[in-house]
Design a binder for these strands. Sequence first.
DNA 1: GGAGGCCGATACCGCGCAGGTATGGGTGCA
DNA 2: TGCACCCATACCTGCGCGGTATCGGCCTCC
Lengths: 292, 292
Amino acid sequence: MGAGQRRTLVVVETRELRYFVAVAEESHVGRAAERLGMAQPPLSRAIAALERRLGAALFTRTPQGMVLTGPGETLLREGRVALAAIEAAERRTRRTAASATRASVVLTAKAGASSEIMAKLLDAYAAEPDAVDVEVVLSPPGHQALMLRDGRADVAILHRPFDDTSGFDVDELVVEDQVLILPAGHPASTRESITFDEARTLPDLPLPRWPHLDGTYPDGPGPELRDLTQVLQLVRLGRTALVLPESARANLRDGLAVVPVLDAPRVTTVIAWPPHSTSVGVAGLVRAASRL
Amino acid sequence: MGAGQRRTLVVVETRELRYFVAVAEESHVGRAAERLGMAQPPLSRAIAALERRLGAALFTRTPQGMVLTGPGETLLREGRVALAAIEAAERRTRRTAASATRASVVLTAKAGASSEIMAKLLDAYAAEPDAVDVEVVLSPPGHQALMLRDGRADVAILHRPFDDTSGFDVDELVVEDQVLILPAGHPASTRESITFDEARTLPDLPLPRWPHLDGTYPDGPGPELRDLTQVLQLVRLGRTALVLPESARANLRDGLAVVPVLDAPRVTTVIAWPPHSTSVGVAGLVRAASRL
DNA sequence: GGAGGCCGATACCGCGCAGGTATGGGTGCA
DNA sequence: TGCACCCATACCTGCGCGGTATCGGCCTCC
């Protein structure tokens, strides 16, 4: 008896997990099979086998397709985490192998945000004697945490409460209030402060729509938010208004007014990294960040 | 183009990961094969295939066996996390299926510690109107976090800095100083306080040895710590001394003296649970804990 | 009410690959 | 130098994954 007598048997292969997630996301075996580049029958069988092995019905079959059961919901949520973990393991292994030649670290941040912080951080870190190359990857809002989870990035600049930092080690960098940015001449632009509800219901100034994680946009009146400077231009034109962390003030030009939003959640900018990271680059960046 | 065009291909199957971990832990293909219940050649081939697919040498072959390379270390660390995640996904799926009949929640804690807290917590939770059954699993020191990671438990009572809480959501319950517990008549028993170094080097009072995670014990002079009351008996007999959180005072009987240890790390008792848990039982326990 | 369309499930088949046995090649040690 | 102990290679076999063809249930729409 060494150290491995207990064995509740990990029987699920990653291939099966991928199949399951695909079917769950499509709610449709045929479409899922197409997405996976395979035929429908083997996929049906694989799902059935998985259900048999887990001893749980993962889907209820309806004439319209497959709908998740309770256990299915659980497996979808946990299975995505597990798949991301495997993906991360692969990627980090490959990167460790590659970095044998030249160490480097991948930092991800939201495009066009926190540029102040980023510049200071990168400068501070670059000044360290044993600094490695930092590859900065700007990605669409909300994708930073995902990239950290699946190993595409080693460190990330995240913003609570918008980003989900659970499962990461974090250091807080800045805490900010949020402000409403609106056209200079607007009636509300002279107010001392405003509530979020008021800001959201300003006549003729619908807030822009932020994209979902998959790149689609919710329905609504406001413009689709793609590029921050473009949207600021729209604000100047009196077409929309914007709620942003107050550090955004630094980048504003004329034609815009700023009003503090009293009840908006405070935004905390954090630097986040996967627990147990052994990268010297990550450690150095975090150290540099904590000295900012 | 829906939401799944990028695909850096998750190619590693859990079977391969299990194989790799086994070989890495044994540093020996033959022994690993035995442990896995298979022959040596297929295992050799599987490892080679994995290395080829990852494009990285995971081991260097020596006449004495297999030793991990840098990328191998990475894959071992990350792979263990990934395997635990898959195991957790399976177990929680099975449990969700089972709990369709009667909801329950598994709470794990260190045997014989925090009993005060535990009792209060369970009482407080049981008093709630929609409380579900709580299955309490006492496990050896250090195993609580593992059980939480691989899904054997839904909530855990952990102790920082001893337990690794990274990756979990936590609520702090108590912060305590630590005290030295020694025989009543001992010369040091009348001191106002003591340092950890002094406590560790008391003549004729070697501190007990705590088991590793695999159940083995480090070499050294002190007794092997198995059962707390047994060790306390040894303390009474003047054979050992013990550093414990001060809440342990409540359980002490005669024949023992207590001296505060000045520079020992403060112990924080926390309740921890996996992020994104959807269990109503977990939510209830956490709520109850925060009201203690 | 029956025909057709759209589901997923089943039947059947072939091939690839995981896993087995036997053996080779390299290294350290008596 | 021979042996013991590693891991790798060669070769074979059987299982299971994935393919095509088809079935059975349900809804829709003439």
